[in-house]
Computed example of a mutant assay.
Amino acid sequence: MLSYLHGFHAGNFADVQKHGALSLVLSMMQSKASGIACFDTHAGSALYDLHSERARKTAEADSGIQRVWQARASLTSPDWQPLLDILAQCNQGQDGLVNYPGSPAWFRQCLRPQDDLTAFELHPAEGEHLAQWAGSGRLRVIRQDGLAGLLRHLPPRQPRLLVLIDPSYEVKTEYQEVARTLEKAWQKCRHGVYLIWYPILASGAHEALTSAVKTGGVHKVLTSEVRLRKPPERGMTGSGLLVVNPPWGFDTRFTAMLNDVAGDQVLNLSHHMDWLVPE
């Protein structure tokens, strides 16, 4: 479970979907002034070097965020702009995209004075990098299991909640564990917004998560799935997100964002969105 390093996959097509959704949800939630308690259960490192040996070994960003960046002038949805602005800030003085922000960086770039972030990371090296980057302030780094840690910190003191659950799923039992944690978290804070990422695999292993959520007690669960039109022989064939309590209008706006990049000139994928569990 501690062998996974996101540096090999940073900026891939799944990150585009996941961080696009995260930036949109944050923007929509921050249209209201009340504070938001943000939790990142599997935070990883804050920044990734897309020119590093790890990143170049897989070169997944080349067919992911790099293509979105190259196509940015043709993107029609205005909801891409916050994401593009953060990428530009992280790459000031660079020739193109060199640095890619991990989820803690996406969160921190958007935090207002009334918001805060708790980031969990169990991997020793990743946790050390994250803690050094975070420094002091409203970003709290906790080096422990994020699923158990999340439950210990709920309900939050702020009136609103946003949670990103993004494990590696290296261990097959994580699918069921995530489903159980989601239900327990939702019982503690039913008004919270929860984003749960999962890989779509040819084996269908991800269906253990979606089936458990569908038959569980959580209500108002939207699912967004993107699938590569030319999937690899091994690895992910797509990427999925469960969005619990999505802000009103999120489905329409996020679909518009993904429609911008679904064509063969950008990410060459298909997108399907539907209610896994209605309200």
Rank of each mutant, 00 (worst) to 15 (best):
P124L: 12
Q81Y: 04
D85I: 06
V98R: 15
E183P: 05
I200R: 09
L162N: 09
P156R: 07
Q30I: 05
M257N: 04
W186T: 07
T223A: 14
Q89N: 09
L83A: 15
P167Q: 13
N12G: 12
S3L: 09
R234G: 01
E225G: 00
T181E: 04
M236I: 02
V178D: 10
K214S: 03
R143V: 03
V213E: 02
W106A: 11
K18E: 09
P232S: 02
L241F: 10
N245I: 00
S34E: 12
H206Q: 15
V178F: 03
A73R: 11
R190H: 11
Y198F: 12
P113W: 02
P167H: 12
L2V: 13
L209E: 03
L87Y: 01
S63A: 13
W80E: 04
D62Q: 14
P104K: 00
N259S: 08
S3F: 14
H19V: 07
R160A: 15
S136T: 13
M28G: 01
E174D: 12
P155W: 14
D145C: 15
D260W: 02
V218G: 01
L47C: 13
R253I: 00
F254V: 03
L164Y: 11
L87G: 05
N268M: 01
V68I: 00
S45T: 11
V213G: 02
L162V: 08
V261H: 00
L83W: 13
A55F: 04
G216Y: 01
V221Y: 06
G137N: 07
G64E: 01
E121A: 09
N245G: 00
C38H: 06
W275L: 02
S239A: 11
R234F: 02
L122T: 02
